[in-house]
Amino acid sequence: MNRLIAILFLSCFWSISGFSQENEEFESNVPKLNRHHFISNTLVNGPFTNTSFSQNLGIGFSAPIESPTVNIGGVEVTLRQTTLIYANLFFRYNQRIKDWVSFYIRLGGAARVGTDPGTLLTQGVNTMIGTRMGWKIRLFQTEKHMLSVRLGVNDIGANFINVLGYVQDVIDSVPNPNISDDISVLQGEMYLDYAYEISPIFGIQANGKVSFGDSYIPGESTTEFGIGVALDANLYPRTRVPLGLSLGLAYASLPELSLNDEQESLFYSLKLAFSGAENMLLSLDATGFRTDIGYGNQNTNFSSKVSVYSFTLNMVYFFN
């Protein structure tokens, strides 16, 4: 550990002071600007149009949830609760058509379940399966800067199983009570993705998003905005230490992570990557955010903010 800290410190020092080893150029398909090879970030997409395939497998846990008192058929019931489990799996493919344009498609899904009968009753089971596809077009590039625009559509099928709401509806003799709601959401989206090489070791990526389309509330439309920024350090090209770090921050609606409907939250992530492979990045991503959770239906009008921590294994292979 001490050695790692020492290496990190020295790397930063060399970078800042301009002192560097004259290493031979690191040949790789990992996206780069000038001499910096960027570490991709889960929260902030880069502007690069390289052909690549990536796979994300994540699992997350909420902090313990405070116990609500819910009203079932006029009876106040206090539930003992533990935590929620989050899981997601996504595959993404980006095909470079020309240097300045690429096509991307992402398939995958996410789920949120309770870990005991109390959370299963109040939180149900939420699942989302979606396809996101579109075009990434490079707008501007210099030696150290790059700006791209992404235009695409995001098609999500969500299913919310609401046990508490169903029980309440049965007790209230609501005709044809539904235990699950299928919701289809389609949104058009535009991102501006930006990258800047600070030094051969450090780089920064940022993006802004606007999307317009269906809301998770049937029959309603919504417009969403989001911003994100990520600072990354790739030690390998200069020091031959096969380590990359990325620190990301985003204020956005990311339902594929939060399993929540269109509420902007603050997300932060720390990524530790193996950057020594020629055309691949392997990484472990720790992401944290606070999200709003509700209980049951309108008769049990209770909501609470809860912290969630998730860990994601990422593999990105760059073909060119």
Partner: peptide, 13 residues
Amino acid sequence: GIESSKFSGETPD
């Protein structure tokens, strides 16, 4: 040519 189409969206159970 030929095409295969389908409605998508909100449906009752």
